[in-house]
Write a protein that binds this DNA or RNA. Structure first.
Ligand SMILES: [Zn+2]
Ligand SMILES: [Zn+2]
Ligand SMILES: [Zn+2]
Ligand SMILES: [Zn+2]
Lengths: 143, 143
DNA sequence: ATGTCAAATGGAAATGATTTTCAATAACGA
DNA sequence: TCGTTATTGAAAATCATTTCCATTTGACAT
């Protein structure tokens, strides 16, 4: 039974990070894990099945998850925070389709070279970066 | 008289873009052009010499300037909009020092290769990206 | 210079996402 | 089961940004 196993893994991860396992946390994670796009707090709550968390609870948990590298917080030009689940806490980036909104992780980071070039140009030592990619997903580009 | 010339150039640019030349606009631009770092609206207003704009005026103008590629709008984890003046409206990025806050433009974009690699990995056609760089400026890295 | 008028300004009020407060609840180890 | 302590959530607070709208002003024609 795959589902049960997934839940067990998730709960273990929560406990391992010092969290108590609450239905709210489980619901938040479940929604994010099964979403194909970044979600706002409002969207996360409205997508919960069987359990409805309060707004502050969702914000608090998302912030904690972000500190653990489990979610990435994106804030676009509309000033609204949106959250994506990260399958790995290794450095990576996300591409989002400008047509349908779908977002996927791009494993790894191909910026090493480019960053070296920019270090040379600027004289800065670059220690951290944040890259947001936008474009057309396979489905939308074949149209 | 260099100063006067700079002003003339700025005013011409404003008129060329269909703007009226108002002291508020001039003041906003003057502050941003001479800042070594991104500024919030509050900061912009407090740095004005000789003329104090109202808050809505500053927001409105910054938005318009952004549409013309004259400023870039950055919104960090503190959810506050900050604005940088761009010396060119060609595509480029900014590096900011995590120690002292200073920011500089990095001319051009060295991401072509990296983007191709990420297109291959993701299957998306990448049409747009936004890169924020952080690190240590020449002064701070020599500690 | 003066008149005309749409663009621009700014004080005040509204908006609305996010955060804080705090009393009630629930997870979990003993 | 019990006690401790983290977690929750309704309500209120916060506060950056936006909207309203009456007043001012820049640009251009006369
Ligand atoms: Zn798509
Ligand atoms: Zn990267
Ligand atoms: Zn520095
Ligand atoms: Zn670029």
């Amino acid at each position: 039974m795959v589902h049960r196993n997934t839940n067990a893994v998730r709960d273990a991860a929560l406990r391992g990070a010092g969290f108590r396992v609450t239905p709210q946390r489980q619901a938040i994670i479940r929604v994010l894990e099964t979403s194909d796009r970044p979600l706002s707090v409002e969207e996360i709550i409205s997508r919960m099945k069987g359990y409805r968390s309060g707004v502050p609870t969702v914000y608090r948990n998302l912030q904690q998850f972000a500190e653990h590298g489990w979610v990435e917080t994106l804030v676009g030009p509309d000033q609204i925070m949106r959250f994506v689940w990260c399958s790995t806490s290794k450095h990576h980036h996300h591409v989002q389709c400008e047509q349908c909104g779908r977002a996927v992780e791009v494993e790894g980071c191909a910026l090493k070279r480019a960053l070296e070039a920019m270090e040379a140009k600027s004289g800065f030592r670059i220690t951290r970066h944040q890259l947001q990619l936008f474009g057309l997903c396979p489905e939308c580009k074949g149209e």
